[in-house]
Structures are given as structure tokens and as C-alpha cells.
Design a protein around this nucleic acid. Structure first.
Lengths: 203, 203
DNA sequence: TAAAAACTATTAACCCAATAAAAGTTTCCT
DNA sequence: AGGAAACTTTTATTGGGTTAATAGTTTTTA
């Protein structure tokens, strides 16, 4: 039964993201679902397999795909403005015990998961850069690859604990993210783009 | 003899930055200096004390203080352009075994060292932001604190190993740093500033 | 007086076995 | 067929004892 497998993935995902991977045993999962481990192992060969499929399930989740189709009529700046509100969903929020366990006990899965997330993020970014350049709203004298990597690194750094050590104040607040977004847009906008941006933020 | 102490600090600094802290013993240091450990321990109570004084010596080193006195006649953009060339000296380059040892075996020293470096960096940044705003070259509608933190985080993230994992390509090259600097300047410049910036980079 | 060398005391890494938890399997039962 | 529970196997963690390295001290020597 395929819907049962989906149910297992969803429940396991919730347990993992709440409590971490290590502390959630296969017994816990089966009890939570009121199914037997036998059934569980019919769908998933090992726990590692289960984790991997949960990660893929997360990536396929519609909320992780920026719906650019709906934004066809928007220009690049407006589009990025929508985009930035959804970035946190993709990259964060850090579920610390989950991330910790994944990195420590399943480093290969952690790497491919992070890589895939980043690739999706980067693809969206590059698309936005291309659109903005075509529209004349963004400059065309920067390296799209470097700039997109910069931004990704910046976002990655935001969640990183030990980078934050030197200052506890800069929590990820709304105003912080707004500043970051404006900083980014100014960083890539042409003069025409900056002027347009002003009309957007002024209202 | 004060000059001998300076000599010790300098030599120890070189050894630490080359080989790390752990693998450089007090015997190694005294042998390298051709002095006895007895003499060494006259100046430094313990190895930890020695490390601490080396770190302070590094921070007091003139190359770590951005000499803004010499740049009085430059405007904020020119000034930052000089500044960015010297940033690498402050924050990097990562001497991996040194950083590793410092973080693992002397976490308190590592923390205060990093904090002090960041404070110095940030003070210079804020000064530059204030200058640029006063000159009308920078916008005045951003949060100086947030933006300077952003940039610091970005630079910190650059050295961070596990943030780079997803992509090996974006090494810290000259062109990479140039892109970053232009991105940053565009991010904070007013329209007047952007126009001025163009005349600088075009030449 | 200070270098060189020998010394002691600490400390951290290493190994190994015991233990406990949880992965994975089988049996029983409805 | 599938849930419940009992079962075996695997695995990671724990703690103790050993060793090696090196911090820190003392003695020797020039």
C-alpha cells in the first residue's frame, strides 16, 4: 500500500525533526504508527534506507520548490522579493539535533542532502539573476556563479553556531532578513534596478 | 631583557602558525631559539601563558591595525578598496592546524582571540560606513550594525571548511574577492556612490 | 648566568573488555 | 496478513589500565 508508505515517511520525518535521528528508534517509529516492525521493514530495508527516503521525501515536498510558474508576470526584483520569504523554508530553520545526528552518524547522507538543497537553491538564484540581467534591472558585470555562491554561503553561515559565537545579538529576525535582502539586491542591481527598488520599498 | 621576549614571541608565533600548537613542544621552542627551557619559563609561566601572549602579540602587530591615518585624504569607497586588500591578513588565511589546535585544546583563548579580531574588524567597518554615509556615497537607510555583522559572517564563512563542502570550486581567489568587494560596495552605495564606483573600477 | 641534559609529574591518547541500546529477525497469536 | 512481543546480532558507548609524550623542575656543566 503506497499511501501507508507515505504515512510512514511523514510520521518519521516529524519524529526525526523533533527529536533527532539517533534518539528515535525503529521501535519508537513503529509504536508511534501502531504498526509492527515487520511491516516497517517491508517498506524499508534498513534504518539508513528509511532516513534516505525521508530526506528525499523532504526534498520532493512541494514547499521546497519555489513555484516560479505563478510569478511569470513579475519582474526579477519582485520575484526575488517573493523568493527571499521562502528561503528560510528551504535552508533553515535549523533543527539542531536532527542536523547534528545526520552529520555525525550519516555523513554521506548529510552531504548529499545539503548538496541537493544547495543545488535547488542555486538553480533558482541563477534563474533570477538571468531574468534580472535580461530586464536590465540587474547589472551584467558580475560573475553569476560567484555571487550565487556568496549568497548561499552567507545563508549557510547564518545557521552555523560557531560563526555566531562572537556576537549573540544578530539573531535571524525579520528586520535582519530584510536588511540582508536589500543588501543583496543593491549588490546586484543596476542603477535602473536601484531606482525601481526604491519605489518598491518606499510604498 | 625585553627584546629577548619579543624574539621568543615572534619565533613561537612562526612555529605555531606553521606546525600548529599541539605539535610544537616547549622543548622544540627552546631548541629553535637555542635557549634553555629555564629561560623560557622565566618569561612565561606556562605554555598556556605563552600561547595567550603570542595571540596578543599578533593582535598588536601593526599589520593587524588598518592604518586609517594614512588614508585621511581618501573617500570611503577608495578607503574600503584599500581596506579589502588587507582583510585577508586580518581574518585569514586559515592556518588550519593552528586554528584546529587552538579551538580544540584552548577554546577559551580561541574565543577571545576570534572575538577581538572581529571587534577590530567591525570597528574599522563601522568607521568606513559612517564616513561613506557622511560623504553621501553610501545609502543611509540601512542598519550599520546588521550590515557589518553580515559582512563579517560572510568572511568567516569563507574560511569555514564544512560550509564549502557542497562546492569545491569557489576557492578564495583574487577574482572571487574582487566580486565580493564590488558586491558589498554596490550593496551599500547610494546612486551617487555607484556612479563614482564605476569610474574607479572602469579605469 | 644560562645552556644542556636529566629528571618528575601530568596529561592525553590508546587499547580492551564489559555493557547497554537499538537494529534487525523470528515466533506467536488474532 | 499483520500486530505484539520475544529473540538474536550488531553497534556504540563506558570505564579502567597502560603507555607515550611533553609540561614543568632540577641538576649539571661551561
Amino acid at each position: 500500500m503506497e499511501s501507508q508508505k507515505q504515512k510512514i515517511l511523514e510520521t518519521t520525518h516529524n519524529l526525526f525533526f523533533q527529536c533527532g535521528i539517533r534518539s528515535v528508534s525503529m521501535d519508537d517509529i513503529s509504536k508511534d504508527l501502531s504498526i509492527s516492525k515487520k511491516t516497517l521493514y517491508q517498506y524499508f530495508k534498513t534504518k539508513n534506507d528509511l532516513i534516505e527516503q525521508v530526506l528525499n521525501w523532504v526534498l520532493k515536498n512541494p514547499k521546497f520548490n519555489f513555484q516560479s510558474e505563478k510569478l511569470k508576470n513579475l519582474n526579477a526584483i519582485e520575484c526575488y522579493w517573493k523568493f527571499h520569504q521562502f528561503i528560510i523554508e528551504i535552508l533553515g530553520n535549523p533543527h539542531h539535533s536532527f542536523d547534528y545526528d545526520l552529520n555525525k552518524y550519516h555523513p554521506e547522507l548529510a552531504l548529499t542532502f545539503k548538496t541537493k538543497k544547495m543545488e535547488m537553491f542555486k538553480a533558482d538564484l541563477i534563474m533570477n539573476l538571468n531574468q534580472g540581467i535580461k530586464e536590465g534591472l540587474y547589472r551584467d558585470d558580475f560573475d553569476k556563479d560567484i555571487i550565487s555562491n556568496l549568497l548561499i554561503r552567507l545563508y549557510l553561515g547564518l545557521w552555523n553556531q560557531n560563526l555566531a559565537v562572537y556576537n549573540q545579538d544578530d539573531k535571524f529576525t525579520e528586520s535582519f532578513h530584510r536588511e540582508l535582502t536589500l543588501y543583496h539586491l543593491h549588490g546586484i542591481c543596476s542603477i535602473k534596478g536601484v531606482e525601481y527598488l526604491k519605489t518598491v520599498t518606499d510604498q
